[in-house]
């Protein structure tokens, strides 16, 4: 359960680390959202995680903190993976943008914003990416009604 990577992470961020675990070689770190950007930059620069493979979120309604941001990191140098999670409360659904660390985070964060309504501080262009402008609500939230339909939009050039 205790790997070199997780041990190093805990030693570097003793206060910000909420939990670490490894299941069949899949290492996961859960950190406080305040430390997310800092930890991400450190993981990229010092541990060689040069590739943000995925960034998404989960809605754990009615749990509090309600949302959880999930990042999958990959180090092409070491051929190693890490899952970085961070809980986000419903009353202030904001986290720091990772676009400054991995520019590939741009569209992922737009998708998370589109589907879950999490806001990313410092994102250069936080607009909906899949749904159209004028769509109300966040469809992947658990409290979005399954059968809800919204009025059709007019054509825009």
């Amino acid at each position: 359960m205790n790997s070199y990577l997780l041990g190093t992470f805990r030693a570097k961020f003793p206060d910000a680390t909420l939990e670490t675990h490894a299941f069949r070689g899949d290492e996961t770190v859960t950190i406080k959202k305040e430390a997310l950007a800092l930890a991400a930059a450190w993981l990229r620069d010092d541990l060689g995680f040069d590739f943000l493979m995925d960034l998404t979120a989960v809605d754990y309604l009615p749990r509090e903190p309600r949302f959880e941001l999930v990042c999958h990191l990959y180090s092409s140098k070491h051929n190693y993976r890490l899952r970085l999670k961070c809980p986000v409360g419903a009353e202030d659904p904001q986290v720091d943008s990772l676009t400054g660390v991995w520019s590939g985070a741009n569209w992922f964060e737009r998708e998370v914003y589109d589907m879950f309504g999490l806001k990313f501080r410092g994102h250069p262009d936080l607009r909906r990416i899949l749904m159209y402008d004028g769509f109300e609500g966040y469809p992947l939230r658990k409290d979005y009604p399954l059968k809800k339909r919204q009025p059709r939009i007019a054509h825009r050039d």
């Binding site: 899949l130 749904m131 159209y132 769509f135 919204q150 059709r152 939009i153 007019a154 054509h155």
Partner: peptide, 10 residues
Amino acid sequence: NEKLAPVLKR
């Protein structure tokens, strides 16, 4: 999908 619907109409 809903986003494409106005395009189809057009």
